[in-house]
């Protein structure tokens, strides 16, 4: 009993730290690939893959400026809240193979994740307001409007998947992410249901750039327009924390997409077992993660231009919500 308690405590201490470090590494590596691929798409050479690591290490030695009229405690704690909440979010997500269970898991993971997802954005908004710069205030307001418009389709996507799982497997804890991961929906329904899943996937893909604040939905940070918006006053270590939490959030949202739509492992197919299978599955998961994030963030980022705030609102409340509701209808029918 004592050893078990000790083990649990050890897991609870090492888990978040290890997962946080891993996610920071993965997220920064992805950012490097993102910049390299975007550069190649524009016929440029692009920075070295490790450039985001260099950027972060540079920001760590820069001076941290604080505006005179800023609300000091809120201004300085917003980046920490941002990074901490993203890492908390990671603790609920299953990474790869199911043997690698989430550090924290329970009955209603998905609901909790839905509530945790806006917290980094809220921390950024608070930081923006606290920095008392008019530009940052405009950015914070824009971020709030974007957030309010993409939350609804996201909820529709997750709830419709949970609803279908509840229809198929009554009596199970369908809001648990581990359960969703171990029961893929694609083959379980007819043609209509699969079309519905495709539509839901499309609306989640549209929501992803808004969540991460990248082009075409980067109205809140539009650099030539409102001078980086939310983070305009942040420098040095505070900005580095925002940079890191952005990287970790990319990993978290990519993982959420994988859990909801591509929960497949490679080892059951080729019949491998043991630690080797575990490693292979994890590698496969990383490949999936990079492919998904590159397809949903890098390609739209390079291929499109920034939308206006009214267009962002319309494309979320009109198109994305419409697609998500249509997908829900198809799933109910299929």
């Amino acid at each position: 009993m004592t050893t078990l308690t000790f083990g649990v405590i050890l897991g609870a201490v090492i888990g978040p730290i290890g997962l946080g470090l891993f996610a920071i590494f993965c997220g920064l590596l992805y950012k490097g690939f993102d910049r390299k691929i975007a550069a190649h798409m524009q016929h440029r050479v692009g920075p070295p893959i490790i450039q985001p690591f260099l950027d972060v290490s540079k920001f760590m030695i820069k001076d941290t400026v604080q505006p005179e009229r800023a609300l000091s405690w809120l201004y300085n704690s917003a980046p920490i809240i941002c990074l901490a909440s993203v890492i908390t979010l990671l603790l609920y997500l299953p990474f790869g193979n199911l043997a690698f269970t989430p550090v924290l898991s329970g009955q209603g993971d998905v609901i909790l994740v839905l509530y945790l997802l806006p917290i980094p954005a809220l921390a950024m908004i608070l930081g923006g307001f606290a920095s008392s710069s008019p530009i940052a205030t405009v950015g914070a307001q824009r971020k709030m409007i974007t957030m309010m418009s993409y939350e609804f389709p996201l909820v529709v996507v997750i709830i419709s998947i949970a609803w279908k799982l509840n229809q198929l497997y009554p009596g199970h804890s369908v809001f648990s992410l581990a359960f969703i991961y171990s029961h893929p929906l694609w083959g379980e329904m007819g043609l209509l249901g699969n079309i519905g899943m495709l539509l839901l996937l499309l609306s989640l893909i549209l929501v992803t750039p808004g969540q991460l604040g990248t082009v075409p939905f980067d109205v809140c940070e539009a650099s030539p327009e409102i001078a980086e918006g939310l983070v305009t006053e942040y420098s040095g270590r505070n900005f580095a924390l925002f940079y890191l939490s952005d990287a970790v959030k990319t990993v978290a949202i990519g993982t959420l997409t994988i859990v909801l739509f591509f929960p497949y492992d490679i080892c059951p197919v080729i019949g491998l077992d043991g630690p080797a299978a575990f490693a292979l599955d994890f590698l496969f998961f990383l490949v999936k993660l990079f492919l998904i994030v590159i397809l949903t963030v890098t390609l739209p980022r390079t291929a499109t231009a920034r939308l206006k705030i009214s267009q962002v609102l319309m494309s979320y409340w009109g198109i994305t919500t419409g697609i998500a509701l249509l997908g829900l209808a198809f799933i109910v029918a299929g």
């Binding site: 692009g46 920075p47 070295p48 450039q51």
Partner: peptide, 11 residues
């Protein structure tokens, strides 16, 4: 210039 890690920033 991005190949040397030089990028333009808005602020």
């Amino acid at each position: 210039m991005e190949r040397f890690g030089i990028i333009l920033t808005g602020t």
